[in-house]
Design a protein around this nucleic acid. Sequence first.
DNA 1: GCGTAGCGCAGGAATTTTTCCTGCTCTTTT
DNA 2: AAAAGAGCAGGAAAAATTCCTGCGCTACGC
Lengths: 216, 216
Amino acid sequence: MTSKPNPIRVMLVDDHAVVRAGYRMLLKNSVDIEVIAEADNGESACKQYNQLQPDIVVMDLSLPGIGGLEAIRRIIARDPDARILVFSMHEDTIFVEQALQAGAQGYMTKSGAPEALIDAVRALASGKTHLDKNIAERLAFQKMRGKDTPFSGLSTREFEIFCLLAEGHSTSDIAKRLSLSYKTVANYSTQIKNKLEVGSIAEIARLAIRHQIVNV
Amino acid sequence: MTSKPNPIRVMLVDDHAVVRAGYRMLLKNSVDIEVIAEADNGESACKQYNQLQPDIVVMDLSLPGIGGLEAIRRIIARDPDARILVFSMHEDTIFVEQALQAGAQGYMTKSGAPEALIDAVRALASGKTHLDKNIAERLAFQKMRGKDTPFSGLSTREFEIFCLLAEGHSTSDIAKRLSLSYKTVANYSTQIKNKLEVGSIAEIARLAIRHQIVNV
DNA sequence: GCGTAGCGCAGGAATTTTTCCTGCTCTTTT
DNA sequence: AAAAGAGCAGGAAAAATTCCTGCGCTACGC
């Protein structure tokens, strides 16, 4: 617990100034962490990253302009060693997958204990990765079951019907269109919900939109 | 600028602890404002309001359990003089309309300057109302042109159920949450589809996403 | 003051959808 | 040849949807 000569230099990226202020206050309590920059959008984050080369980026995903994911990709593209901690309100594992795939080394949700942010920053600074415990577990389960994207578990037919459901077609609509018994489509629909672990058509729609499978 | 004997007593309501910490820090800079309570959900907010009778409630709308809107209604029902400032991420005017109708005296978005929050709190404390400048303008324009969002044809209850449907909740889910007969919710659901001229829950979800009423 | 209209709420009845189970065919893999 | 899995669909029970009706309440206009 000796004072360190080189504090962890952090850049905060979040579109809400109040929220950044919250992070700042929180991180101020740790002498080994120093907030050296803030950005309220993805472009600015990329630019500042290149200028200041912070050790850690703490980044929200929902940003105006290019989103958080794209910002991560751009930062990583220029500096493959960049260390980015996503700090998002989204609990859904799809966001975690996307963030990690984009190059982030950590993912925390805002609903966790504020102190967890500090632990995560330190973990990333020391070269480790850090996932929200809750989310890591869910992700692990998904992976064990051999699911890359949530859709890779779907068969061709299932995916076809998934798309039509997401577009707003009714079961009997789809049956007519595909020349199937409505029973068949109904059964597929149930099957799809099970595989994707969603409970309603609304969630199917959101999932599809999230993956840009259908347009908003 | 003399120090005041009776600071404005504020209660913060937001489900993210980090965000509340941000508000706290921000408001701490004003000697005439004192944060006397925090809540991370609607029920707790109502309970604490009754016990502590804060002068001002600063409230997010997206809360677990009963949403922010319902919390506002309950607080106002018990104390019609309650002064509530909504501090939300939603820019869509539909939320402002709903919040004001529920009884709030102010609406600010989180994307504004942090200092604006302080002004708003002071405005409400002195008996005035306070709307985000940007939003007030849009609201005025809409009203003048008599042209609202597709949702303005929905009643308060209908809109509430619309949001829950779009989030993926089932009819009986919603019935439990709102303490209604599932028949009532089912009937509302049909009514909503008719009013919005959509044929399925998936389209409800997409409509809601398009208007950023729910997150993708 | 009284009619009218709209909202919130919910039951009845008929219909449709969903769910869970089962069974069949066909193809692919081992 | 056996096994596994996709595609398809029916039966039966459960759940959701739709359309209709009705009631209480509040607000508005005449």
